[in-house]
Simulated assay, not measured.
Amino acid sequence: MQPISNYFNRQGALLSTAGPVILLLGMVIIFTFINPRFLSWINLFNLMRQSSILLVVATGMSFVILMGAIDLSVGAIVTLVGVSAAVLVTQGGLNAFSVAVSALGIGALCGALNALLVLKLRLPSFVATLGTMTIVGGISTWISGGVTVFFRNPDLTWIASGSIIGRVPNSGVLALIIFALASFVGTRSQFGRSLSAIGGGGVTARLSGIDVLRTKAFAFIVSGLLCGTAGLLLVSRTSTGTAHMGDDLLLQAIAAVVMGGTALSGGSGGVHRTLTGVLVIAVFQNGLTIAGIHPYVQIMVTGMIVILSVTITLDRSRLAFIK
């Protein structure tokens, strides 16, 4: 079995680097051939607007996956922030600035809860964040009453749909700034190098002098904070809060991270690779929409992409057993 594992690992290293870029270019060519409007400025701006929220969530997820953990609560946190923001506007009468601060605070608090469950109670990240996802989802349904919360606040809408640079939407500009800063932190800072070391082996990282607990806690809090940012952008763009508005982001974020080249087992890849994975997912969905493919089919194909990406990038030599 060892030669087979080595073969998959060698192929994974090659495909995780060049594969997503080749796939992205291929999709652009195919979708442009199907519908020339795919490369129109209107559709490109729309593509940026759609992918910005996923990019923010996937950036936070990258930090967590890089250290060999997982955060299944990202979609639920986005939903909670979106619903809370809508309720704060309609019932609390808060202005856009207060809502934005509250959104970031809620996201960071949820990330801190995940860190507490994983590090203090020593729960596996899969179990801890699955529980958090369920709890946060229940709170979202309770706050919204199970119905869509509509609001009208031009200042809040401007955060995502306005434009300070030409016709480029603010959501796209903010997402790129967040990604650039996170990429710099991930590749140039001690924190980023520590995450890779922890993903490669927690014991070795600890013996190297890395504060494993603090680094892991910070990664979960950053993930929650960025989910709060994504939730703010989503509710600002749609002017509605619903109990399931962020559900699709979990699967898409995992797909984007692993397709970008960060191994699900941790230790290799990095935040800087996530943009390619996000573009693959966004272009794929946008192209299928323009081609008239049903959204349910898009969801099924996205699931297949996750399976394929994990198959390519998973380091089987680090798995003690497979069920």
Rank of each mutant, 00 (worst) to 15 (best):
13 A>P: 04
59 T>I: 06
171 S>Q: 00
237 R>V: 05
10 R>G: 13
321 F>C: 06
53 I>E: 11
24 L>A: 07
115 A>P: 07
53 I>N: 02
319 L>Q: 05
198 I>E: 08
303 G>F: 09
227 C>R: 00
191 F>S: 05
34 I>A: 13
126 F>R: 12
125 S>G: 03
319 L>W: 13
220 F>A: 06
98 S>F: 11
37 R>V: 14
55 L>M: 13
248 D>Y: 06
199 G>L: 13
277 G>T: 03
245 M>H: 07
3 P>E: 09
42 I>P: 08
288 L>D: 00
126 F>A: 07
322 I>L: 14
226 L>A: 00
194 S>G: 13
71 D>V: 12
230 A>M: 09
242 T>V: 11
45 F>Q: 14
239 S>W: 06
224 G>Y: 02
90 T>S: 11
207 L>T: 11
63 F>I: 11
90 T>C: 09
49 R>P: 04
181 L>G: 13
259 M>N: 05
227 C>M: 11
277 G>A: 04
102 S>H: 12
260 G>S: 06
155 D>E: 13
248 D>K: 13
84 S>R: 00
48 M>K: 00
77 I>H: 08
287 G>V: 08
73 S>G: 05
134 T>S: 14
126 F>G: 07
112 A>E: 11
256 A>F: 07
284 F>R: 09
269 G>H: 02
252 Q>A: 09
4 I>K: 15
39 L>I: 10
302 T>K: 01
3 P>H: 12
195 L>K: 05
20 P>T: 07
194 S>H: 00
45 F>A: 13
25 L>G: 13
